[in-house]
Design a protein around this nucleic acid. Sequence first.
DNA 1: GTGAAAGCGCTAACAG
DNA 2: CTGTTAGCGCTTTCAC
Lengths: 335, 335
Amino acid sequence: MRKLQLEDLSKQLGLSKTLISMVLNGKGNHYGISKKTQTKVLDEVAKLNYSPNKFAKSLRTGKSNFIGLIVADISNPFYSKIAKTIEQTLFHNKYNLMVCSSDEDESRERVLVEMMINQQSVDGLIVATAHADDSFYAQPRFAAVPTIFIDRVIPLFSANYVTIDNFGGSMEIVNHLISKGLNHIACFAITPMHLSTILDRINGYKKALETNNIEFKTELIKSIHFDQIEQDVEKQLRHLIKEQPEVDAIFTLNNHIAVALLGALRKKEFEKYRQIKISCFDDIELFNLIDNPVLSVSQPIEEIGQNASRLILEVLSGNNKSKLNIVLPTKLVER
Amino acid sequence: MRKLQLEDLSKQLGLSKTLISMVLNGKGNHYGISKKTQTKVLDEVAKLNYSPNKFAKSLRTGKSNFIGLIVADISNPFYSKIAKTIEQTLFHNKYNLMVCSSDEDESRERVLVEMMINQQSVDGLIVATAHADDSFYAQPRFAAVPTIFIDRVIPLFSANYVTIDNFGGSMEIVNHLISKGLNHIACFAITPMHLSTILDRINGYKKALETNNIEFKTELIKSIHFDQIEQDVEKQLRHLIKEQPEVDAIFTLNNHIAVALLGALRKKEFEKYRQIKISCFDDIELFNLIDNPVLSVSQPIEEIGQNASRLILEVLSGNNKSKLNIVLPTKLVER
DNA sequence: GTGAAAGCGCTAACAG
DNA sequence: CTGTTAGCGCTTTCAC
C-alpha cells in the first residue's frame, strides 16, 4: 500500500498539485483560489487523511520544523521538565523536538551540535551547554542558526539566554542561614565547576558571607564530582568535620548533593552531626517528607522552558520583540 | 555562506558525486573503489566537515533515521530515564530520537502517531500507549511501521513489547506484607485504570490475598486520579480509615501515590495511623531518606530502554533474532 | 483562478 | 573502477 501523495489527490480531484499545495499551505486566498475549490480540496484531504511528506517538504523549503534540544542529561528531572514544557509549546506551533543528552561532555555536545547543524536537520537549537567558553559557539558558521541557551550561560558571550538568578538565589539562602544565627557555613559544590550556574552560586555564597562580615575560608568549599556524588559526599563530609568541627550549616549547590548528604547523615558514623542545618539550591518536593527541615530555593523550571520556546519561535518567525536575555528569580523555601 | 554540498566536494576533488556518495555510505569496497581514492575522499570530507543534507538523503532513501518515542509524560522520571537509555543506544546506531508526550490522552496519542507516520518522519515507533484496546493500532496501515510497545501492553493485541512483570511484582509485595503478619491490606490504585500495568498490579494484589485465604473486599481498593494525586489520597485515606479502621497496610500502585500518602500521614489528622505499613510499586531512592520504612518493588528501568531500542533496531535491520515479547522481572526492596 | 515545469540535494541503476 | 542520469515528493515561479 503506497503512501498517499499529492499526485494521487491531484488525480482524484482533477486539480493540479500546485493548487492543492497552495491550499494546504494556507495560501489559497493569497493566490485567489475560489472558496469552493478550497473547501473541496480541504475536505478531500481530511477524508483521505493525507499529509505531505516531511522530507520532501523540508528539502524544498529549507525548513525542517525540528528544534534540537541538547541538555546534560534528559533523565535529570530538571531537564526533563524543561523538555516537556518546550515540547508542548513547540507542538502547538507545528515544531517537533529532537532531544539529545551531552552527558556533561563538551566534545559530545560539539558532536551533537555539528550533527544537527551540518545535516541541516534543525531550524533552531536550545542548549544547556557544558562549555565554559565561547570558542565553539562563537564560530561564524553558528551565527546563522537561531540558538537559545538555557540554564547555563557562557560568560562574556553575547547570546540569547534564559537562565535563573543563581547568584541572587544563593545569596538569599546563605543570608537566611546567617540571619538564623548560623555562621560556620560550608558549601558543597559540584564538579565540573566551570559552569556558569555553579560559579554564580559560589559567588553568591561568598558575597553573603562578605556582606555579613563572616570570614571565608577555602576549606569551607568542598567539591563533589557529579558522577560519584554519594562517595564524594561522604568523603568530603569526613574532611569537613575534621577540619572545621564547628561547622553548623552546609549549603549544597544542587539537590542531588543534598539528598546524598541527608543519606550520609543517617549513618551511625555521622550521628553527632545531625544537627547541622542542610540547605540546598533547587528544591524538591520530597524534602517535605523528611524530618530534617531543609532550607532551599526553588527554580521556576516550567518558566525556563516556556521562555526558551517562546524566544526560539520569535527568532524563527523573524519578529523578536522580547528581550532576549532572561534571568528568572528563585524563591526561598523555608521549612 | 552556502551550505557545503556534494557538488562542491565533487569539483574540489575532481570526482563524481556518485563516487563520493558511495564512499561516504561505506559502499566503497562493494563498488570496488580503490583504497587510495577512498582515503582521499574521506580526508577531504573530514577536512571540510561535510555531512549530507538529512532531508535530501531521507527523501531519496525513504529512511528518516528518526525513531519516535511517545510516552505519557516525558517529565516523569520513569519515562525520562527510559528516554535517556533509548536516545544513547540509538545515537550509537545513527538514529535520532523524536520525543512526544501524550499526556495520558488517547486522542492526543493518536494525533502524534498519525503525524509521525503520515509525514513519514519516523522509521519506527516506541510507544508507552494510553490505549486500552487495539482498535487504533490494529489498523492495517500501521502494520508496516515497526513499533515496540513499552511499559503498557494492549491486551489481546499481538505486538512487540517490553514490559515488566506487574502481576508478579505486585503479588510478591503483597505476599511479603502478609508474611509479616499484616492482613488488612488496602490498595491505592491509579485512574485511568484501564492500563495494562495497573490492571496487572491489581490482579497481583488480589491473587496474593486469595492464595493466602484473605478475603478481598471492594472497599479496600481506592482509586486516585493521576491528575490530582494529593487531594485524592487524603480523601480516600479518610474514607478508608472510616470504612476499614483495622487496615494495617496500604499498597500503592505507583510511587507518586506513596509519596503523597507519606505526606498525608505526616498531618495531625492522620497521626493515629502512622503505623500503617506503606508499600509501593516502583521504588525511588528517596525512600531511603525517610524514617518510615517503605516496602517496594523496583523496576529495571534502564533495561526497558535497552531492550526497546535493541528490538527496534533489530526489526529495522530486518534480522529480528530476539524474542519480541519481553517481560522483565521486578526486585523486592525491603527496608 | 489554475497548471506546467524546474529544482531542492541526494542515491542508485546503469553504462562504460 | 568511475561517471551520467533519473527521480524521491514537494513548493513556487512563471505562463496562460
